[in-house]
Amino acid sequence: MTRMKQTITCLIVILALLSSCGTDDTPVSNKEIFEIRTIGTLSTSEYTVGKIIKLNDEGEWYHWGDRKILISCKAKIKAGVNLNNLKAEDIKVTGKKIEIQLPPAEIISFEMNPDQIKTEMVDVSGFRGGFSQQEKNKILRLGEKSIREDMKELNILNDAETNAIVFLTDFYKNLGFEEIIIHGTKQDKRTTNIDR
């Protein structure tokens, strides 16, 4: 029995010594992939929202114990209108009167600042291991998805449209127009895409 243990230990050490020559320290490439696009969006409303992401991982039957994690995060969402969608027939000028049909309000940007993501609590019991960064990123993705879903309930698009109307009214007043009529878009004609 003792002999067998010695043999196994020797084998492990030899294996470790043999493979210790292996290297895996290739530096990452600095090659970057990018895309530049011309846009014309007017952001008029910014919401900062917070969410607590709660996960209770009870695991499978062969994992004794469970894991719990609470992560707090913040997201900054900007909404506004895409002025590039303004067609020639959307702006009607008659003397000192201007009438505009505004494009529908939409989400312009969505940011989750990594510095505002904080693991508040981790509880691991039994034979379970802690959460790796890969797992935390997956949990954060679920949190992001949940925020994007909840965003539909916010008033951000209405606010963005109202603020855009206020801004454009002032803008055209500065240009010397006396009568400014700006039409918004009905809610059911707005884009439902929240995946910005």
Binding site: F34, I36, R37, G40, T44, S45, T48, K51, L83
Partner: peptide, 18 residues
């Protein structure tokens, strides 16, 4: 979801860089 801040902004974005 907790709304922590609502801000009125006026930003004209003309270049999107991915």
């Amino acid at each position: 979801l907790h709304v922590e801040e609502i801000r009125k902004i006026v930003e004209l974005n003309t270049i999107k860089f991915r």
